[in-house]
Design a protein around this nucleic acid. Structure first.
Lengths: 144, 144
DNA sequence: GTCCATATACTTGCGACTTCGAAGCTTCGA
DNA sequence: TCGAAGCTTCGAAGTCGCAAGTATATGGAC
């Protein structure tokens, strides 16, 4: 369920020039759509814990429940609820409620969300090599 | 161990399994550091417009000034100011003030920040293939 | 020679929106 | 009656946006 192998690379190691060139190859109209989609996406991901939630899914590799997320992430339940609604509303998560007692609800990332997961892998990878503690002593690897 | 420890590509197209395996290959101690760095990073990037700011640098490819960012991004000056401080504080941006009149200040992404840029390229790329408009009618691309 | 507008990079005040934390709600089995 | 799961509600606190102000020196108007 997690690996659509036929998917084009969607690789995130595009260089800036390539990305810019690609973007510029579109009609102004399409380009504007992309711009505003990026802005929307940045806005959505910018909300509290949105990325943490998606990140949890990226690493879990299976559906997660409200309480799973609640214990994985340090987040207030109302905020989690709001974020989950934002994310399902944006078509990144699917919500499935099972009519059992006690009630069970599973959230599953959509394909759109899975296309985003390499980002979280990259962030994780970044954290392995870097640090955020201001004094940045961890960046001793010779870049390019 | 699939990755030689010296300098793995930092590529963002790592699969989840690879990322998890890599992470799990560390001591518990190092692993915890990574976890908390990721959490911090997610927290920082989650603040309003933090990603938009970094994204601007990622696509600009040159130092940017306060007013550049102010016009590129739809952001209030106090928020931009706060974000710039957060980012420089985290060692992602360097601030250089030129003692001229009118004053000029340039912000330059550090190497740490540049290591993050593929993420923004990926996000942009994602936006080319996907949409965020709730009804998710755009995900008919090569889907299953 | 003096006064004002301009430019840049911010800061301040205040109101609005967002998030937090704890508690409550619902249904049913033990 | 309690607990379990998934929320919702409430008041308090934090964050953000908007408009305006600050500091300095150059250039023009008078």
């Amino acid at each position: 369920m997690s690996d659509p192998p036929e998917k084009p690379e969607l690789s995130a190691n595009l260089s800036r020039e390539e990305a810019v060139a690609l973007r510029d190859s579109f009609d102004p109209e399409e380009r504007e759509r992309v711009e505003s989609t990026v802005a929307e996406l940045l806005d959505l991901l910018g909300k509290a814990h949105a990325m943490a939630v998606l990140s949890a899914f990226a690493f879990a590799g299976e559906p997660l429940r409200f309480s799973d997320l609640e214990s994985d992430i340090d987040i207030a339940p109302n905020t989690l609820s709001a974020r989950l609604q934002d994310l399902t509303g944006a078509g990144l998560l699917d919500r499935t409620a099972y009519d059992e007692i006690p009630p069970r609800v599973e959230y599953t990332p959509t394909e759109k969300a899975e296309a985003l997961f390499p980002v979280f892998a990259h962030l994780h990878h970044w954290a392995i090599e870097h640090d955020l503690s201001a004094d940045g002593t961890t960046d001793e690897d010779g870049g390019e």
